[in-house]
């Protein structure tokens, strides 16, 4: 790691101020950022830890929605997001227990790793990303791998999920990293079904609209079976070709629908 100053504000206001410094970088749980820093792939002058800010933590269910503080750990979501079992189950399978102890939802979606789990849930749920300055719809938030609508210094304070009637997340793990080689989140709302895919596309998390249409008409695995595999530019690497990933999207979507019941 290159050298940097480390600050740990206690309030959101202090954090926003600290992030105003030149080359300042927010640190959530650090479970992705710290390995990146170790490889000397980033060189912040100041690292602003958000882990000491109580107001960013917590899970609240009210009026058909579930609001998760941006600094809430995956382990906490796994335990406390009872109102949204598919989301709790997703959180319980992110990384490993140590990652879940420290990693946060805000950190995960701000980073928008193309293989991360949370972006699929946020996008499939049509969730709202709440920051210190505004609210951003999930459809506007994710803008390609490692890219989001966040402005420099903007902090995710919460994510608000409308709770679906049924939902399920299916992850097929990359054999080495155990990140999602492909992950599919299916959420059924009164207004229709949303399907979001992580791990597969060079564009990062995306919605598979053909599947949404088919499943909105008939929420059954058989509705997916007839579809062509999704188009678009898929990632190809030693763990799978583009065609393999596209195929897995279809398989996992069907399985998610079946598991959602």
């Amino acid at each position: 790691m290159y050298a940097f100053d480390f600050v740990k504000p206690k309030t959101l206001a202090e954090a926003v101020k600290a992030l105003g410094a030149e080359d300042a970088q927010a640190l959530g749980g650090g479970q992705t950022l710290i390995p990146t820093l170790k490889q000397r792939l980033a060189q912040p002058a100041v690292l602003v830890s958000l882990s000491g800010i109580a107001e960013l933590k917590g899970v609240k269910a009210a009026g058909g929605s579930l609001t998760i503080g941006g600094g809430t750990s995956h382990a906490t979501v796994a335990k406390e997001a009872k109102a949204y079992p598919a989301l709790a189950a997703l959180a319980a399978n992110i990384g490993d227990p140590a990652v879940r102890s420290l990693g946060t939802i805000g950190g995960s979606i701000a980073n928008n790793d193309p293989s991360a789990d949370y972006p699929a849930a946020v996008l499939a749920s049509g969730a709202t990303v709440v920051t210190n300055t505004r609210e951003i719809a999930a459809d506007d938030f994710f803008q390609g791998m490692f890219t989001t609508a966040l402005e420099p210094g903007e902090i995710i304070t919460a994510v608000r999920f409308p709770v679906p009637e049924k939902a399920n997340y299916q992850k097929f793990e990359q054999p080495a990293s155990r990140f999602a080689l492909v992950g599919v989140f299916v959420a059924k709302y009164a207004a229709g079904v949303r399907v979001a895919v992580t791990g597969a596309s060079t564009e990062g998390v995306f919605r598979w609209t053909e599947a949404e249409k088919a499943l909105s008409a008939n929420f059954a695995a058989s509705a997916v079976a007839g579809l062509a595999v999704p188009g678009g530019e898929m990632i190809a690497d030693i763990h799978g070709s583009a065609a393999y990933r596209a195929h897995l999207i279809k398989v996992l979507t069907g399985r998610a629908v079946a598991a959602a019941g």
């Binding site: 480390f6 740990k8 640190l27 650090g30 479970q31 710290i34 390995p35 690292l47 830890s49 882990s51 227990p97 140590a98 990652v99 102890s101 420290l102």
Partner: peptide, 11 residues
Amino acid sequence: QVKSCTTFALD
């Protein structure tokens, strides 16, 4: 449970 290699001492 945390990985002490993925946590800053100051944090």
